[in-house]
Amino acid sequence: MSQRHHVLSVLVENKAGVLARVAALFSRRGFNIYTLVAAPTDDPRFSRLTVVVDVESSTLEQITKQLFKLINVVKISELDPDEAIERELALLTVQADVNTRSQVIELVSVFEGKIVDVGSDQLTIMLAGEPSKLDGFEQLMRGFGIIDLQRSGRVALAKLEIGRPKLHSVTGQAN
């Protein structure tokens, strides 16, 4: 993920057409969406959109201000990648015949993925984790031949405790 990507966590009203309003706003103002994930929250009145946008930071302020002008948008937080937990899920169907299958299975196990479907010379793999881990796995699988790939787009929440770790207590040195 390049420097120009920013993660916005947008709490919206769970009403018809809200996603269309958000998408139309991005298109109208010439902003680019990198990934967008929409799903209900624990409160049925609201949904959360996790939007990864592709911008200079000066227009990021414009994006959040314009988004907030939408009547259905309730709250927006910009998540700093250092202060957020980001996860993504990928499903991949990979070429894996008798000669390569054991290698693929080994890599799946190293990456803590799961084989969710098995064909005669193909495997479908599920992998969840940080987006960079998915990038790495995708890269490795390319060598075997990716038949199909679907990534979910990232979801994110702010980290619970933000602050420097207390180094002296970790190291045990009082000074």
């Binding site: 018809a16 057409g17 269309a20 309003r21 139309a24 706003l25 109208r28 939408l70 009547i71």
Partner: peptide, 14 residues
């Protein structure tokens, strides 16, 4: 109508 006027109204309701 709500789709067409989305970008030229402050808000609209169906």
């Amino acid at each position: 109508t709500t789709g067409i006027t989305m970008s030229v109204t402050k808000h609209n309701w169906l």
